[in-house]
Write a protein that binds this DNA or RNA. Sequence first.
DNA 1: CCCCAATAGTTAGGTACCTAAGTACAAATA
DNA 2: TATTTGTACTTAGGTACCTAACTATTGGGG
Lengths: 180, 180
Amino acid sequence: MRRHITFMTQHPETGPAAPSIEQVRRQIARYGLSADPQAILVAARLMTAGARLGQAGEVHFGRFGLSTGRYRLLADLEDHGGEKSPSQLAATLGVSRATVTGLVDGLEREGLVVRRPSAEDGRGNVVILTARGADRLRELAPEHFARMQSLVGGLSVEERATFLDLLARVVAGIDALAED
Amino acid sequence: MRRHITFMTQHPETGPAAPSIEQVRRQIARYGLSADPQAILVAARLMTAGARLGQAGEVHFGRFGLSTGRYRLLADLEDHGGEKSPSQLAATLGVSRATVTGLVDGLEREGLVVRRPSAEDGRGNVVILTARGADRLRELAPEHFARMQSLVGGLSVEERATFLDLLARVVAGIDALAED
DNA sequence: CCCCAATAGTTAGGTACCTAAGTACAAATA
DNA sequence: TATTTGTACTTAGGTACCTAACTATTGGGG
């Protein structure tokens, strides 16, 4: 039971080419810098992997008539009893309130959530998961979790633990990328 | 010497909340599935990290009046002698030709590249890196590589090697997410 | 020699993000 | 009590992606 999805149905086949260590060395040399090629390579590969993963995620969720952002909103909503304000959603999803507005717009068009004015706060809305929305989540769950699991299926339990640890430490360093 | 950048100048402060193992367990239980919570957690964290890294990357490149996509195009161009067709760029960057059209549009507006009709192929263009474009790359290189390096600065050389290996194996499994 | 399929690039429409500005309402303060 | 400050959400405009459709040109097969 596939829906009218007009995006992300073709396999792009491509995916960003992972940079090679030689390419990195060449770049560093070109500007006469003293950076560690291995470190740069790891960072570059991680960014490439992140982009590829993001694109694959869109294809994945597209199969269910959703996008990554819409799925995350729906799942977060269900995790919170099916009712939450846009501001709360923005905070836990880590996106701006404007983005939540857009996501809810789309989900509401599809009938997966509804907006109701907040009882306590005259300024606020409450986004409510509909039965249709809950159905959609239930429907995609088996395939979703199976695919997520197969994503890291090539790693042993110990390797996954190691990966989780290393990943967390890199994530902690992400702010170094953007800090003033 | 910062440029007229109107996007991504505020620190969003937020960043997607990393899912907890309990949250994952709850989701799996809700649908009566038998997925391995640890595996799901790793996959979810990786997707979150990818998204965060992508956003941080935009902030990073925004400091130089560029975006991740535009920087990658510029760098690839320089790596290739400063001249390449849009199709070739699309292939190595792993994006669609339509996306390259948009990226080149922006870069051409800024005077960092120019489009010239191809001599061999009447259908084709050649995108050429301008002196201004090369200057921009040279200008941002020190800060760029320093930040990239500090991104993985929390990892030892051995850990980085391990991370690179594990990452490659996960990337190899990415297609499992989107395959038919 | 001509036609037709394949390719190069652009355009149109859609999605997710962002920032900044605008509107409505709440809460704190003078 | 009136004003000011802060918060909630939306809207406007911008960027990067995507697919699908369209134009132009190339190149192979009848």
